[in-house]
């Protein structure tokens, strides 16, 4: 058992025994060695299910939305990206700070699940792309903190800037090539909405994509409706996406959704100044305010 797993179990037990929270949300081992899905722990004797390993990908903050109308408190483990998701939801008043106990975990970066499945257990596995791009591996907000802060600050300081070469490669194509590329990607979308449901930036009580009777989107699965879905989803998370990569990981059809999200992050930075979602909860969202001196291209 890793040091961190031990610490997780200890603190979870403590929180439950003291009654600081009714439930602790963490990760446990799944069906395969490269899966560490979410776990909900209500009883101190169940804490031994909790683990911390290279595959604790699921962003747990999203579950706090389920507890919005719930009386009691929940404790949740947060990596860097999960803490940004928490801030994001807090900023939208989707959750109440006092109802949540946050346990921060410094994150060394997780491993790529798909590669793990493909290459097997005893191979040299690459980090997940979202983790290579991540600028905030340390939790930004927490009540408890597990691990060595000093070491993590160093990690954060030496992080390389996010790599946008994948976005640039698409920008370099001709319009027709780009259209072809995206049509092929979204033609295989089955509109299961896993990408939406897993996303901490998607928290509307009624989503536009569930409004088929009203006619916002058609039920049919075809290029046109799927592209409507892709573009609308991307615009809806623009300025709110915390780059946790969960949408892309959740997608059963392996659609490179992060290529859309990263494009928007990049353009927002270029057009309206550097902005990272879920860092500063007082600040305003890029599309929720404006600057009189914004670039003018519409004269």
């Amino acid at each position: 058992m890793s040091e961190m797993t031990k610490k997780m179990q200890e603190i979870a037990r403590e929180i439950l025994v003291k009654g600081e929270a009714e439930v602790v949300i963490g990760w446990e081992k799944g069906t395969f060695w490269y899966l560490s899905p979410p776990a909900f722990i209500d009883k101190p004797e169940d804490v031994q299910r909790l683990v911390w390993d290279d595959f604790c990908h699921n962003n747990l903050s999203k579950y706090l939305v389920d507890l919005k109308n719930h009386e009691g408190k929940a404790a949740v483990f947060v990596k860097g990206c999960d803490s940004r998701a928490f801030n994001r939801l807090l900023q939208d008043k989707q959750i109440a700070r006092e109802k949540v106990v946050l346990i921060g975990i410094p994150c060394p970066g997780l491993l790529d699940q798909d590669k793990a499945k493909e290459l097997g257990k005893n191979s040299d596995l690459p980090k997940a792309q979202k983790c290579l791009d991540c600028q905030y591996p340390n939790p930004l907000v927490y009540d408890y903190y597990l691990g060595d802060k000093e070491a993590l600050n160093e990690v954060a300081a030496t992080k390389e800037a996010a790599d946008y070469s994948d976005v640039a490669a698409i920008e370099a194509m001709s319009p027709d090539e780009r259209y072809d590329f995206w049509t092929k990607q979204y033609d295989r979308c089955i509109r299961c909405y896993a990408c939406r449901n897993v996303c901490p930036a998607c928290s509307c009580r009624e989503c536009v994509f569930d409004q088929t009777r009203v006619g916002w989107i058609g039920k049919a699965n075809n290029s046109s409706e799927n592209q409507f879905f892709a573009l609308t989803r991307a615009m809806h998370v623009a300025g709110r996406c915390i780059e946790c990569g969960e949408c892309e990981r959740a997608c059963p059809m392996d659609i490179p959704i992060m290529l859309l999200n990263k494009k928007l992050v990049k353009d927002i930075n270029e057009l309206f100044g550097e902005y990272d979602a879920g860092i500063d909860i007082e600040g305003k969202l890029p599309l929720g305010h404006f600057d009189k001196n914004d670039p003018e291209e519409f004269m």
Binding site: P37, P38, A39, F40, Y63, I190, R191, C192, Y193, A194, R196, N197, V198, A250, P252
Partner: peptide, 10 residues
């Protein structure tokens, strides 16, 4: 932990 998507059904 279910997300109520339809990946499993589809």
């Amino acid at each position: 932990k279910c997300l109520n998507c339809s990946a499993c059904a589809y």
